[in-house]
Structure formats: structure tokens, C-alpha cells
Design a protein around this nucleic acid. Structure first.
Lengths: 333, 333
DNA sequence: TATAGCTAAGAAACCGGTTTTGGTAAGTTG
DNA sequence: CAACTTACCAAAACCGGTTTCTTAGCTATA
């Protein structure tokens, strides 16, 4: 493969001139520039980025740690990150970790070993997690929950849940089931707080029987739906902590002969693309995924640039999307 | 940041010995090895991968070009690619191109400029496409359609479509609508071939009125559903070229007061995660995404290794997933 | 004892760029 | 006209590893 020296020889100039022709063309005379460009074409030269990056001690790559990239919420975030990244000359090394800490460590090593310059963590932070911010590696967290101990951009899940719960309550619902995520999941915790807060605000007593613990998957939502459908004192509405579980629950309700939303209202969380096409279309919360991704990348660029970030937590607002899956509670027959 | 020379100095050995201690420890005496390891701990040394890769002229990264990574089919493929890649020490640079050739060129440049060693193209090849295989860059295509002019691993979409159509026909359907993808999309072309072949085999005359051109999105499927629902001589079954459009169509049928599958049967293509949770659950084709991704990466490794690949096209088999969205045609009232 | 053969390890070359240094030719100023 | 810029460019140092070449020291064999 041709290198800068071959070009220099062909053009009859020094390698320094060839280098400058690429990085600081205005520092090179028209005459030399032309000679260089002709030589470049002649030998089919392409600068070797590895050499360039090595010399400049920048990999121009960042790693994005994502728990699960079959999750369409994350793909929205990644897309936004990517957009800002390429605009600034950075590539993205995608690390899907699937809650495997070994794998995650592997990826963090990439930035320690200079294959990447920084890191965006999409997995919500848990108190027992020690890996990050390991030391002085540039990192920002996005889409997390409350309590992230380093620069983060996120939504307030508690507030969003409060909003959707208030909506259910305003429709006259008082017995409201909750299909939760895993108990220790930070998002579950935050959303659960909103659930309980809304009940308390409305003077409705919290009933642990009305909480079903799922794991954010459709099958677990289906199980939750069955649980509520078979209850003797069935709730009139169900607050599901994400759209997938809501879809599973709707299926279970229908199998049990219940109509949605006539017999039971339901809400989701995330506004996945298919939320418009479920039957009924889901009333849900839309996270500002694009803004979070964009902001996170901008912050990371700033940090990698050595600039101090004066604020450690950026909280963006949710959107409340009203569709068809909630109806006012009916008068008891 | 500490480098190999600092370690050598601290350990009182040469840099060559330190290097060997990492890459060929068996070539180093126990004594030196211990001195080196102690020094490594003392100065907190981590080998600089950029330098290593630069010297060895391998980036240990590949780029995966994916048209749309919010498409859950692609995420299955990418995941499989990633698994094989990391097992072999490679990282993945994800390039979402969204049919933007400029962007795609940008990513191909990454391997020309040695930021990556090879490339997997997930976008189906079209005859007018000139970018690949540009020259001698290691590349393989996965998930494409027929007619890919370089090493590829794919499914036979025509055969899969034929299978699902034969199933519909075996259930007594003769008026079968088709919600197609964009006319020039290679997958559309292959799947359409299967559609027509099945009709011909069964002696059913092809009726262009029964073909609705969508674009693989839920809204276009919805439009297709409306189109067929309003037809005077409505088809009894609809062959949708993917699951998303099937979901849209089901929604439209229901809005038109039709029952699925009692009034109209429907089939999908791709077996997305939610295909089990639609109402009714979709009868569909499952592509061997994982195998395709795995095979593609293995082939790429082989090619990057300089080994010849003796076969240029690998065709894997589809799975036919029967669920609830098809019923035998009813006797006319 | 001489010599070949082997192992361990240091010195130095090397990968392909960027950047610093220094020198020359031309133009500018007092 | 001497002194001083300025523009351009070549030579060489440099980034942090790997690899080649060489030598020193040891063992085995005749």
C-alpha cells in the first residue's frame, strides 16, 4: 500500500509537504499543492488513519454501552448520539452488554487502552456498581435514573409516572393496578415512586395486591394481565411500566374476555413505534430519547476536550401521549 | 500516561522484554517476568492499543453497514455478528446509512483508510450500486437478495414466499392480496416472484388489482389494509411482505369492521418479537438472522485472513412459523 | 577443551503519519 | 543597501509499540 513517502518521492517534495497538503493546505504553495495532488492520484494514496490517530493520540471513537439494542428506545438514543458523533468526526463502537459485567469491563478497557476516547453509558446506574467512573476516563451517563454519580442526562421518571397516574385518576379510576419492572431496577424504583405519590396525593390507599412484578418483557406483561384479569376485585385501570408489558397485558385481557379500554384501561411507557398500532393505541409516555442522546454526546465531546462541565445532572422533560387505551371509569352496574 | 519505556526503566529491563512479557510471556524468564509485572503495577501501565494496532497494521475493527437499526430483524443479525467478532478480538463500528449513499461512502472510507479491516453490508444489493466491492477491500454481504455480486450469505426470499403462499392456497384461498414493499427493493422483487409463482403453480390468474405497493412501514401497511377492506371483491387472505405492514393492515381491517382471521387471513414476514403478541398472533416467516450474521462474520474473518473463499453464495433456510392469523376460507354464504 | 546449539535479553530499526527546527530565497523596510 | 520579515519547504525527531538482529551465557556433544 502506498504511503506518504511514496507520494513525496513521486511529487518531488518532502513528506512534510505532503502532510501539510492534507492538514494545512493553505500553508502550501499552489505549485507544490498541485504536484502533491497529482502524485496522490497517480499512486492512489489514502492517508492511514491509524497512523494519524496514533500520532495525535486520539482514536476518534467512543464506545456506547447499551444493555440491549433490540430495545427500540435505545435505538432512538443511539441514533441521536451517532448523528452528533459523526458530525464531529467520531465513530461509535457499539457495546451491547446484556447486563454482563464482564463484557462491560471489556468495553471500558477499550477506552483505557486508547482504542476509544470516551464512553456513554446507557445502562441505569445501580448503587452496587463500581466500574464507573473508574478513574479519569471521559464518561457520561444517559437515560439513567436518579442517583447517577457522574455527569448524566436523563428524564425524571417519577414525575412522568406521576403525570400518567394523575391522568388515570382524573378519569375516575381509583383501583389502579401496576405492572412493575424488576424491583431493583432503578427505573422501576423511580416510576414506582410516581405511582405511590399519585395515590397518596389523591388519598387512595396503596394496596400491595395491586402490584405485579414483571421484567419489562411482553411475556411478563402477559402474566401481569392474567393476574389482574383473574382478580376478584379487578382494577379498572392498569399502569404498566413500559409498552411491551402493556402489549402483553392487553393480549391477556382479551384472552380473558375483557375489552380494552371499556372494561379495563391501560397505559404504557416509552412510546415504541408500534404503540400507535396496538389495539387500542397506547396512551403512554414518550421519553426525549433524541435530545438525551444528543445532549449526552455534546457533553462527552466537551469533557473529552478537557473542558469542565459545570453541571452534573441534566433533566429533560417527558411527553405525555394520549391515545385510546384509557376510558373514564364506568359507573358500577 | 505511562508507556512501555517507563515500565522498562522501572523494571530495569529493555522495552523489548516488556513487550515480550505481554505478547510472548513464554519467551521471558520467570525472573524478568516478575520484574516487569511488578513495574507494570507500580506505574499503572496499560498497553496502548492504537500503537499496537498501528504497528501490526490491523485495526481489529470491522464496519457493519445497516440501513436501519431500529429494525429488529437487523438487530438480531448484528448481535450475532458482534458475538463472533468479539470472540475473535474484533470490534464493531456500526454504520447506520438510512439509504444515504454519501454516508455509506463515508463508512467504506473507514476501511480504505485503515480504521477498520473489513466490512459487512446488510443492505440488499441493487444493480445500480457501484460502491462495492470497490476494490480489494474485504467485504461480505448478508441478508441480501438474489444477484449480489460478491460473497454473500442470505435466505431465498422467493422460496420462502412460495411456501407461505402455498400454505394460504392449501387453506382454500384463491383471492390473495399482496402488500408489497417498494417495487425496486430487491427483497420485494424476490418475494413477489414467490407470490406469482405460487399463483401460477395453483393455476390462479394473477390480478394486478390485488397488489398494493407499500414501503415496509406500519403506516403503509395500514393504507394497504384500507385498500383491500374497501374493495368490492375483497380478497380472503393477504400476503404482507413484512410483519410491520401486517400489523398496520390488521389495524385497518379491524377499523373497517372486519375480523381477522375469520373475515380475512393475513401473513407476515420476519417474525418480529411482537408477532406473537399481535391479535391474532402472526403466521409468518422467520429468517435465520443469527446464522446469517454468524456465517457472514466467519466468512469475513476468513477473507481478512487472506484465505480464499471457495463459494460465493451461501443460502440458508427459512423457518415457517404458523400462528393464528390464517384460517381456511369460508364457504360463500 | 573446542565447537555447535540454544535461550534470554538488549539495541536499534521500523510502522506512517505529524510537528518542530532550521535554512533559503524572495520581498519589505528604514 | 543592510537588516528584517515572510513564505516555503526539507530534514529529522517523535508517537509507543513490535520485531529483527546481535550478543552473552549456558549446555551438550565429540
Amino acid at each position: 500500500m502506498s504511503n506518504i513517502r511514496a507520494v513525496a518521492k513521486k511529487a518531488g517534495v518532502s513528506i512534510a509537504t505532503v502532510s501539510r497538503a492534507f492538514t494545512n493546505p493553505e500553508k502550501v504553495s499552489k505549485n507544490s499543492l498541485k504536484k502533491v495532488m497529482d502524485a496522490v492520484d497517480a499512486v492512489g494514496y489514502r492517508p492511514n488513519m491509524m497512523a494519524r490517530n496514533f500520532r495525535s493520540a486520539k482514536a476518534y471513537a467512543i464506545v456506547v454501552l447499551v444493555p440491549d439494542f433490540a430495545n427500540l428506545f435505545f435505538t432512538r438514543v443511539i441514533r441521536a448520539i451517532q448523528e452528533v458523533a459523526v458530525k464531529n468526526g467520531y465513530n461509535i463502537l457499539l457495546g451491547e452488554t446484556r447486563d454482563n459485567e464482564k463484557l462491560e469491563e471489556e468495553y471500558i478497557r477499550l477506552v483505557e487502552s486508547r482504542q476509544a476516547d470516551g464512553l456513554i453509558q446507557l445502562r441505569p446506574h445501580t448503587p452496587d456498581y463500581k466500574l464507573l467512573p473508574n478513574q479519569h476516563i471521559p464518561a457520561v451517563a444517559a437515560c439513567g435514573a436518579s442517583g447517577t454519580p457522574y455527569t448524566s442526562v436523563r428524564m425524571d421518571h417519577s414525575v412522568a409516572s406521576l403525570a400518567i397516574m394523575n391522568y388515570l385518576i382524573s378519569m375516575g379510576h381509583t383501583r389502579i393496578g401496576c405492572i412493575a419492572g424488576l424491583e431493583k431496577n432503578p427505573h422501576s424504583i423511580d416510576r414506582f415512586e410516581g405511582y405511590k405519590q399519585a395515590l397518596a396525593d389523591a388519598g387512595i390507599e396503596f394496596d400491595p395486591e395491586l402490584v405485579f412484578e414483571g421484567d419489562f418483557t411482553m411475556p411478563s406483561g402477559h402474566a401481569g394481565g392474567e393476574y389482574f384479569a383473574n382478580m376478584s376485585d379487578r382494577p379498572t385501570a392498569v399502569f404498566s411500566m413500559n409498552d411491551e408489558m402493556a402489549v402483553g397485558a392487553i393480549k391477556a385481557f382479551r384472552e380473558a374476555g375483557l375489552r380494552v379500554p371499556e372494561d379495563v384501561s391501560i397505559t404504557g411507557f416509552d412510546d415504541l413505534p408500534f404503540a400507535t398500532y396496538t389495539d387500542p393505541a397506547l396512551t403512554t409516555i414518550r421519553q426525549p430519547a433524541e435530545e438525551m442522546g444528543k445532549k449526552a454526546m455534546q457533553l462527552l465531546l466537551q469533557i473529552m476536550d478537557g473542558k469542565e462541565v459545570n453541571q452534573s445532572e441534566f433533566i429533560l422533560k417527558h411527553d405525555f401521549v394520549v391515545r385510546e387505551s384509557v376510558k373514564p371509569v364506568r359507573a358500577k352496574a
